[in-house]
Simulated assay, not measured.
Amino acid sequence: MGSHHSHDSQDTTAASALPTPATQAGRDGLAALLARPERAVIALDFDGTLAPIVPDPDQARAHPDAVPALAALAPKVASVAVVTGRPPGVAVRHGGFAGVPGLEHLVVLGHYGAERWDAVTGTVTAPAPHPGVAAVRAELPGFLDRIGAWQGTWIEEKGRSLAVHTRRAADPQAAFDLLREPLTGLAAEHGLIVEPGRMVLELRPPGMDKGVALLDHVRALNASPGGVGAVLYAGDDLGDLPAFAAVDKLRSDGVPGVLVCSGSAEVTELSERADLVVDGPAGVVGLLKALAARI
C-alpha cells in the first residue's frame, strides 16, 4: 500500500484523508478534538450538509454513507447532534437515524432547537408553538396572491414555522427578492422573524436559532464531569451562521472549535467564515470517516 508514498509520509491513508483547516483557530480546534475526543461535540446541519439539496425537501435523504460514518464516530466523542430547522421526526426519518447501533446517544435538535429527539428514548420533547405561526398560516396564501407571487412559489408547513420556497419559480432569485420585504413585514405583524436561506424564506419565532440550540446543548453537557473540550460544527446555509457565531463565542470562552462549510457556491458568507470547506455532503461524510479513523 505504502510503496508509492514518498519516504517522509508516515501517516496512514485514513489519516492523510483528514483535511487541514485553513485557519489557525480551526487547526487548534481540530487538534483539541483529536487530543480529547471524549470531550468533543460534533454538530451538523441536515439539508445540504448530511443530505444533498434537492428541489423537493420531502425527497431529501441523508448521503448513503452518512449514517455509517456517524455510527463509527459517535461512540468515540461526547455527543453527536444534528441541528436542523426541520421538525426532528422528519430529520430522523429522512436521515435513517433511529435504531442504529453506535447512534444510541444521537440527539436531533429540530425546529432550530425548539424540539429535541433523543435516540436513547426515541421520543421528541417540545414546548407549545408560538401563536403567530397559526395566524400567519391562515393569512399566507391570500397574502402571496395579493402581492403577485411568482408561479412555482410554494408554502412548506413546518409546524412551528412556515417556509416560502422559490426554487421552482421560473426565476427563483427574482421571486425570492420580490417576497423578502413583504414577508418580513407580515412576520413582524405577528411577532415572527424571516430567516432567508437558499431560495427559501422561513417565517418563525425569534430567539430560535441554531446558535442558541448549540450553546444550550453545550451548556447542558458542561454540567457533566470533564465538560466540553472542543466543538465542530458543519453547515451550508445562512441559517447556520448563528451556529458559526456560537462556535466563535465558545472559542472566545476558551473552548476550541472547527467551523466546516459543506461547500456551496450559493452561500459564500459561510465559506468565507469557515475554517474548512469540504465538497458538499460527500465531503462532510469523508471528514466524519477520517475523524473516526484517526481517533
Rank of each mutant, 00 (worst) to 15 (best):
residue 158 K to T: 08
residue 126 A to R: 15
residue 190 H to Q: 08
residue 91 A to S: 14
residue 219 R to W: 01
residue 102 G to Q: 08
residue 47 D to T: 05
residue 158 K to C: 04
residue 45 D to N: 12
residue 103 L to D: 05
residue 252 S to M: 03
residue 178 L to C: 01
residue 188 A to F: 01
residue 261 C to V: 05
residue 21 P to N: 06
residue 282 A to S: 14
residue 64 P to V: 10
residue 232 L to A: 05
residue 246 A to V: 02
residue 68 P to I: 00
residue 154 W to R: 13
residue 1 M to P: 08
residue 27 R to T: 07
residue 180 R to Q: 06
residue 204 R to E: 14
residue 255 V to K: 04
residue 173 Q to G: 01
residue 67 V to D: 06
residue 225 P to S: 12
residue 255 V to D: 04
residue 108 V to W: 12
residue 175 A to S: 14
residue 163 A to S: 15
residue 62 A to M: 06
residue 27 R to G: 02
residue 193 I to A: 14
residue 163 A to F: 03
residue 274 A to E: 01
residue 88 P to I: 00
residue 161 S to G: 15
residue 63 H to C: 11
residue 33 L to M: 06
residue 142 G to L: 01
residue 242 P to F: 06
residue 66 A to T: 02
residue 211 G to A: 02
residue 145 D to T: 14
residue 218 V to P: 02
residue 34 L to C: 09
residue 148 G to W: 06
residue 16 S to V: 11
residue 124 V to K: 12
residue 142 G to S: 02
residue 61 R to G: 13
residue 186 L to K: 04
residue 43 A to M: 02
residue 115 E to I: 04
residue 211 G to I: 07
residue 247 V to I: 05
residue 131 P to C: 05
residue 237 D to C: 05
residue 45 D to Q: 10
residue 61 R to I: 09
residue 253 D to G: 14
residue 192 L to T: 10
residue 110 G to E: 12
residue 253 D to W: 13
residue 130 H to E: 13
residue 173 Q to T: 02
residue 21 P to S: 03
residue 3 S to C: 10
residue 63 H to A: 14
residue 217 H to Y: 10
residue 168 R to G: 11
residue 148 G to A: 11
residue 125 T to E: 15
residue 287 L to K: 10
residue 90 V to T: 15
residue 128 A to R: 11
residue 219 R to T: 15
residue 191 G to A: 13
residue 82 V to K: 08
residue 17 A to F: 02
residue 238 L to W: 00
residue 258 V to K: 12
residue 5 H to M: 14
residue 146 R to A: 14
residue 114 A to C: 08
residue 120 V to K: 15
residue 33 L to F: 08
residue 155 I to A: 11
residue 8 D to L: 15
residue 212 V to H: 07
residue 140 L to V: 08
residue 113 G to V: 05
residue 153 T to N: 12
residue 93 R to W: 00
residue 132 G to P: 03
residue 252 S to H: 11
residue 108 V to Y: 07
residue 88 P to W: 07
